[in-house]
C-alpha cells in the first residue's frame, strides 16, 4: 500500500462528492429527513409514555448514520467508477484493491462524521437532544464497532458488484435495511419475536444499540457484550475483505472488469 495512491483516491472520491447532488443529499438531506419524521413521531409518543422514548430513538437514529453512510458509501463509490466507466483506467494503473478499500474507509469516516454533526445540531435545535452528553468512551466504542461492521457489509456487497456487475447495484441501497430491523436500533431485543431474536443476538449491531439504551438510561454497560460485538465485527471484516478480493480476481477472469459492466 502506498500513501500517495490512497491520497489520490481520496481526492478522486472527494471530487465525485463535491459536484454530485446525490452524494450531498446522502450526507445532509436524508439524515435530516429521518430526524424530522422519526423525531416528531417520537415527540408525540413521548407524551404518552413515562419511558425516555425520545432519547432512545434519537440516539438510535444518530448512531445508525455511521452504519448507513459507511456501508453504502463504500459500494456507491465503487459503483461510481463503473458508471463513469473509469474502472478500466483505475485497474490498469498501479492502484491496489487494498488502497481503494483504505481510501473508502477514510471517506466513510469523514462523510459519517459530517452527517453525524449535522444530525447532532438539528436534533439539539428541534428536540434539545444533546448527543455530546454521552459518555465519550462509550460513544467511541459504539462508533468503532459500527464502523467495522459497516465496512464489512460494504465490502461484502462490493464483492457482488465486482462479481456480477452493476445489474446488482440495487444491493448498494437495500442491504443495510435488511439488517436494521434485526439490529434493534429503536426497540429492545426483548421486544422481538423469538425467531427474530435468534438472528438479532448474533449481530454485533444489536449489542451496540442495547448498550446505547443502557447508557442513555444511566444503567451499567455490559463490556462483554461489546467485546463480543468487536470480535465478531473484526472477523466479519476480515472474511468480507477476503471475499471481495476473490470477487475482484474472479471479475478479472470473467472479463466483467475489462468491460466495466
Amino acid at each position: 500500500m502506498k500513501l500517495h495512491r490512497i491520497k489520490a483516491l481520496i481526492l478522486n472520491y472527494y471530487y465525485f462528492s463535491i459536484d454530485s447532488l446525490d452524494r450531498l443529499f446522502d450526507v445532509f438531506y436524508w439524515p435530516i429527513m429521518d430526524l424530522f419524521i422519526w423525531g416528531f413521531m417520537t415527540f408525540y409518543i413521548q407524551g404518552l409514555s413515562e419511558y425516555n422514548v425520545l432519547n432512545t430513538i434519537l440516539g438510535g437514529i444518530v448512531l445508525w448514520i455511521f452504519i448507513w453512510r459507511s456501508s453504502q458509501d463504500m459500494v456507491v463509490y465503487i459503483l461510481e467508477s463503473f458508471w463513469s466507466r473509469s474502472v478500466y483506467h483505475l485497474f490498469s494503473s498501479p492502484v491496489q484493491f487494498s488502497e481503494i478499500v483504505a481510501s473508502l474507509f477514510f471517506l466513510g469516516i469523514i462523510r459519517s462524521l459530517a452527517a453525524f454533526l449535522t444530525m447532532a445540531v438539528v436534533s439539539f435545535l428541534l428536540y434539545q437532544f444533546n448527543v455530546f452528553a454521552f459518555n465519550l468512551l462509550h460513544f467511541i466504542m459504539f462508533v468503532s464497532i459500527l464502523f467495522l461492521f459497516a465496512w464489512a457489509v460494504g465490502l461484502l456487497v462490493s464483492s457482488f458488484i465486482f462479481r456480477y456487475g452493476t445489474r446488482l447495484q440495487v444491493l448498494a441501497w437495500s442491504t443495510i435495511w435488511i439488517i436494521q430491523p434485526f439490529s434493534c436500533v429503536f426497540y429492545p431485543l426483548s421486544s422481538l419475536p423469538s425467531w427474530a431474536a435468534k438472528i438479532a443476538i448474533l449481530l454485533p449491531t444489536t449489542h451496540v444499540f442495547e448498550q446505547l439504551r443502557a447508557s442513555i438510561a444511566g444503567q451499567p454497560i455490559d463490556y462483554y457484550s461489546l467485546l463480543y460485538s468487536l470480535i465478531v465485527s473484526i472477523v466479519f471484516l476480515i472474511v468480507a475483505a477476503f471475499i471481495a478480493a476473490r470477487a475482484l480476481e474472479k471479475a478479472k477472469v470473467s472479463g466483467s472488469l475489462a468491460k466495466a459492466e
Binding site: 483516491l9 465525485f16 459536484d19 461510481e80 463513469s84 466507466r85 473509469s86 478500466y88 483506467h89 494503473s93
Partner: peptide, 20 residues
Amino acid sequence: YSLSTNLTVRQNLEVYARIY
C-alpha cells in the same frame, strides 16, 4: 474508455498524476 465522466479534465489528470 474515458476517464471519470463526472470529473473535470483537470480533476481527472490531477488524480492520475498523484496515483503515479
